[in-house]
Design a protein around this nucleic acid. Structure first.
Lengths: 226, 226
DNA sequence: TTTGGTTTTAAGGTTGGTTTAAGTTAACTC
DNA sequence: GAGTTAACTTAAACCAACCTTAAAACCAAA
């Protein structure tokens, strides 16, 4: 799967690109409207992630240009969180879905997968790791013994992040950054409380504690050496 | 099923064509009145989707021309949402149904199916899910206990979307985007009110709430807790 | 204009996901 | 082993999301 990522904010780009690549996409970059328009018309991508706030040429115009050239590649647009009419305009101009900023990387990956599935009629988007099976559409997790549990928002985001980074030790700070939109957490034990809830649901030995380091789901990722 | 899509707005075309194809239709394109008239007279289509705002030759004239040549292929016309007389003129000129812009792709697919069924006397298009049976033609739903309820527009669109996505958790935002043509909803509780009405009609436990996430129609495959 | 039905708004009550807090246990250090 | 700190567990408090009801606004038809 070849993705065109159109984004001028370098900080964001350098965060998204590796994530996309790790999710198995080949990523091409464009950091302004002119390049984006050219690339989109010249080369074949399976999907485009398009930030609307672009230098050079407005994102919407770029999108319209592609569509008027008969290019129907699915496009996911990034807009300011509460700029509603930007979204409407975007969808009118032929976008397939939108995502409000700021957002979590996993959210982007999920949307992208959904867009691709809708467009190419692909399979479902369940996530599997450490003997668990997590379904983002129903917010249900199936544990090792086949029991289903429906999750709340925080439970779901926490478990998803642990599953995405299965076998790695993740610090509480990093966890809470991914569970909440804006990071906060001065001295709260929310994460501990929720880890406890997940352990009650999925079994005590499902999540391991590394004192002072963080938590780890499943067995260690690099068992060969060290 | 072979469809002629007459539409000059490339953005719209490149969105509709794949959807139609995915729904199993073979799609032919015309982007102006002259081509449309020619194609409609020369080749055999099972149905036509005709935008009235066309360059080259007015959509209405094209339609009249077809009819005067004895062509009775069912035609679905696209008009501006509140251009009332365009619709009347369209129906007079021999159109079989109309759809106001902007619209949701699913709406177009539904109308098209209805038009085809009416014209060729094909099978019905009732929608079944979660023990319910929804008839888009009569806006009537049959519940688990066999009782019939006739629905209003909003009730119908809301229930249809939930049934189409049976078993999945759908956010209120997404629901209201599909219930209304243009999205709005700043702080309105319309969706909540209508969910309540559907629950009164179809039974309290038919639609499940996932606080902070959305609503879900139908039950989980293996309900074990909560 | 009135009418009948649909849709929207408003207000108050309820609830359950989230957060805080406090006491307990486990792990590490000297 | 004693002392220190991090993590665990439980339960109660909080508050935004949701429910429910009713009335107001709307709209098309008569």
């Amino acid at each position: 799967m070849r993705i065109l990522l159109v984004e001028d904010d370098m900080a964001l780009t350098s965060k998204l690109k590796p994530s996309l690549q790790q999710a198995g996409y080949a990523v091409e970059l464009a950091s302004n409207g002119i390049d984006a328009e050219f690339l989109g018309n010249e080369e074949a991508f399976d999907a485009v992630v398009l930030d609307l706030g672009l230098p050079g040429k407005p994102g919407l115009d770029v999108l319209k240009s592609w569509r008027s050239h008969g290019n129907s590649t699915p496009v996911l647009i990034l807009t300011a969180r509460d700029s509603w009419h930007e979204r409407v305009d975007g969808l009118k101009a032929g976008a397939d879905d939108y995502l409000g900023k700021p957002f979590h990387t996993e959210e982007l990956l999920a949307r992208l997968q959904a867009v691709l599935r809708r467009h190419y009629g692909k399979a479902d988007n369940r996530l599997m790791a450490a003997g668990l099976e997590l379904d983002p559409d129903t917010l249900v997790v199936v544990d090792q013994s086949g029991r289903e549990h429906s999750l709340t928002g925080i439970e779901f985001r926490l478990l998803r992040y642990l599953m995405l980074n299965q076998g790695q030790v993740i610090s509480k700070t990093r966890l809470s950054e991914h569970v909440y939109e804006e990071e906060q957490l001065k001295d709260s034990n929310v994460i501990e409380v929720y880890i406890n809830r997940l352990r009650q649901l999925l079994g005590r030995d499902c999540i391991h504690t590394h004192r002072g380091q963080g938590y780890r789901l499943g067995s260690l990722s690099n068992p060969s050496n060290r």
